[in-house]
Design a protein around this nucleic acid. Structure first.
Lengths: 241, 241
DNA sequence: CGACGGTTTGACAATCATCAAATACAGTGG
DNA sequence: CCACTGTATTTGATGATTGTCAAACCGTCG
């Protein structure tokens, strides 16, 4: 798969990331370029996609971090997954779909609308969307397992590892080091914990030197050991025989 | 959407369920019929799909209950979702995909391979797969929210409501009543709890008359009230304007 | 400087897990 | 028909994990 190309030419932008997912035609490249020129800024903690609303076309996150989430009637909030630069939101399998979750900027964010694949055929883009969707599916399964069967300690470690994997794939992190621009409160909402407990568990992770986390910089002193400890799963690309 | 047709003609078989998801051509109907003739039986607690293995084509569950799951290296098990009669497993967005979870029969089960959509174009089937996939996605988000933000009491109630919704959509339940052919141990693995705690919580649900559950028959004395109490979300079909 | 959002800490309570054993229930073979 | 077996449910006693409430601390920004 074209995923391996990342090892050689890491994408240096959200567009590059998308075009790395499949082989795009000249026309598709042009279309992608045109789409990304029309950007929209969203401030931190602003909702830019609402559960229950129709989703006409997918959105591409050009910069910043965002998340998908749901809120319960009494205010409890669950973050379903994070949206990192180069990620797509609102990928729907069907036309005229209704958003089954809302989306929120976690930092200052830039987004743009992506072309649909419907009227004019864009096989390359469709393939890129499919691969991006498959990865989303995979990360959602990870999320279920984290919430259902991991302890607080393991949940945080596993989520951090997954974030690093994704940032590395996107060409935004190397050497087991990345910036983590989100609050402990946000982590708590993603991990089914309270911010107080996240804080205490982070302390334990630091004590064990499982992670180093200071002023928004996250480092794994021993990535492999931590991954083994929490039975971390990384995404496996489709196989071409 | 054709989903509304269920209200009028509830499907009486797994095939009928599939053909209710989209408008199939004559050829596609024939193809579907041919596929379902070639069935495979699987005994309870037998794995019929393994994480890490390639998934050539989707499987249709013709009868019985199954689930998707993952196991951790130390034996902890998480059920990711249930597979009910008429459901598809191994729906992949990309070709040559690798299963990101295993699947297991929970009761005696019949499955069959479904045609791929690749060589010969089958737009109706593709649409049916897309809709089935969209519903799977939705139920997975429900699962994340359950595990992350609901109490044990709410988790069980919400899962039961969802199971009923799906069984009703499949034409296998009415009148807020259904058969529940799974053990408390299985429920525990789905809900991130222990079987002991599931048992105690079921007692509480019975005490409150939130559910009636005896010898595999599950009834909701007041479905609407319970749904409101746990902020239950039902799948919303794509909208055609 | 003060205000504000985020982090950190403490004391205590609730939820849920663990371990162990008793009971119920269905199937099987004598 | 009945003992026997294995699996599922139920209950009790106890402990660990995580939540709640409250306050202190810290850095940033106006």
């Amino acid at each position: 798969m074209t995923l391996n190309a990342h090892a050689i030419h890491p994408p240096h932008s959200a567009q590059a990331r998308i075009s790395g997912l499949a082989t795009l035609s000249e026309a598709e490249h042009a279309l992608l370029d045109r789409s990304t020129r029309n950007r929209r800024r969203v401030s931190p903690y602003r909702e830019f996609l609402s559960e229950g609303q129709p989703v006409p076309r997918p959105l591409l996150l050009l910069s910043g971090w965002a998340c998908r989430f749901r809120v319960l009637s009494d205010g409890r909030r669950q973050i379903l997954g994070f949206i990192l630069p180069g990620d797509l939101v609102g990928l729907c399998r069907t036309d005229h779909a209704i958003a089954s979750a809302s989306a929120l900027a976690l930092t200052q964010v830039e987004i743009c609308e992506m072309p649909g694949t419907e009227p004019t055929p864009t096989p390359g883009l469709a393939q890129a969307y499919a691969l991006a969707g498959a990865m989303d599916d995979f990360y959602l399964l990870n999320q279920v397992t984290r919430l259902g069967r991991l302890t607080a300690y393991e949940r945080i470690a596993d989520l951090f590892l997954e974030m690093y994997d994704r940032m590395e794939l996107a060409g935004l992190a190397t050497d087991h080091e990345m910036t983590l621009p989100i609050t402990q409160e946000t982590l708590a909402d993603a991990l089914g914990l309270t911010s107080v407990h996240v804080n205490r568990t982070l302390k334990a992770l630091r004590r064990d030197r499982a992670v180093v986390l200071e002023s928004g910089l996250l480092t794994f002193p021993d990535y492999a050991a931590l991954a083994a400890q929490v039975d971390h799963r990384a995404y496996r690309a489709p196989t071409v025989r």
